Simulated scan of single mutants.
Amino acid sequence: MKIFLLSLLLVGVAVALLAVRLFFGRNFVNMHTDSNPALRKKGIPCARTQDAQARKRRPLQR
C-alpha cells in the first residue's frame, strides 16, 4: 500500500509541474505552415489553404 501511495504522490507532483509549465510557461509552438516563414518562402501552403483553393477552382459535385 505504501508503494501505491508513493507512486500516486509522484505522479501527482509530475502532473502538477506539467500544469504549471503549461499555464505559466511559454506558448506552444505554432505548427501551421502558414506561419512558418521558410515554408511560406518556398510557396508551401497549409492543407486548409490548398483545400479552399481546390474548392474554388472546382466546386464539389453531388
Rank of each mutant, 00 (worst) to 15 (best):
P37M: 00
V11S: 07
V13I: 08
T49G: 00
R40V: 14
V15P: 01
N27W: 08
A14Q: 03
R26A: 11
L18R: 03
F23H: 12
L17S: 09
N36A: 07
V15M: 15
A38Y: 12
S7T: 13
L9M: 14
A38D: 07
T49Y: 08
Q50W: 10
L10T: 06
K42S: 06
G43L: 06
L60Q: 01
I44Y: 10
L10K: 02
C46H: 07
P45T: 05
K2A: 12
H32K: 15
T33V: 15
R55M: 08
S35K: 10
L9S: 14
L60C: 00
P37I: 01
T49F: 11
N30P: 02
Q53D: 03
S7C: 12
Q61C: 01
A52F: 13
Q61R: 09
R58A: 04
P59I: 01
H32D: 15
I3Q: 09
R21K: 03
A14I: 10
P45H: 13
A52W: 14
K2D: 11
A19L: 13
Q53E: 04
F23L: 15
G43F: 10
T33N: 13
F24N: 00
K41Q: 04
G43E: 01
G25H: 09
L18A: 07
L22H: 15
G12Y: 14
V11C: 07
V15Q: 07
A38G: 00
R62S: 10
V20C: 06
V29S: 11
L60K: 06
N27T: 06
A38T: 07
L6I: 08
D34T: 06
L9R: 09
L60E: 01
P37T: 00
P59E: 01
L22K: 12
A47R: 11
A38P: 00
L17R: 06
M31P: 10
R55F: 10
F23V: 10
D34F: 10
F28N: 08
T33P: 13
L39Y: 14
P45G: 08
V15E: 06
P59F: 03
K41C: 00
M1T: 03
V29W: 02
V13T: 03
V15W: 12
L5T: 11
L22V: 08
Q50M: 12
R40L: 11
V15N: 01
L22S: 11
K56D: 05
R62G: 07
L39H: 09
R55D: 09
N30H: 05
R21F: 11
K56S: 04
K41L: 09
R26L: 07
I3V: 10
R62I: 04
P45Y: 14
K42V: 09
P37L: 01
F23S: 03
P45I: 06
F4H: 06
D51M: 04
F23I: 12
P37E: 02
L39K: 14
A16I: 05
A19Y: 13
N30G: 02
L18W: 13
Q61K: 09
R48E: 14
S7V: 12
L5H: 09
R48D: 12
A14F: 15
V29Y: 10
L18D: 02
Q53R: 04
L8A: 02
